[in-house]
Design a protein around this nucleic acid. Structure first.
Length: 61
DNA sequence: GTAATTGT
DNA sequence: ACAATTAC
């Protein structure tokens, strides 16, 4: 089976303008030194096929 | 500006 | 090599 890697997140798809539940292709922490930062996910819009990045919840795996 | 990541 | 992502 294809590993589903990440659970779905509610994100705003900037290309379609719609709020959709998508599984990120990849997630990483974006944080300057000595600051908390945020988690960022890489997503692909099902509508347009365009890639975009968006914040994912802090408690995300 | 800074942090990491990656499609373009 | 650049853009974009968040928030401090």
């Amino acid at each position: 089976m294809m590993p589903e890697k990440f659970p779905p997140v509610k994100v705003k798809d900037p290309s379609s303008g719609k709020e959709v539940e998508l599984s990120p292709i990849k997630v990483w922490t974006l944080a300057p030194k000595s600051r908390k930062g945020v988690k960022i996910g890489l997503f692909k819009s099902p509508e347009t096929g365009k890639f975009f990045r968006a914040k994912v919840p802090e408690n995300y795996p």
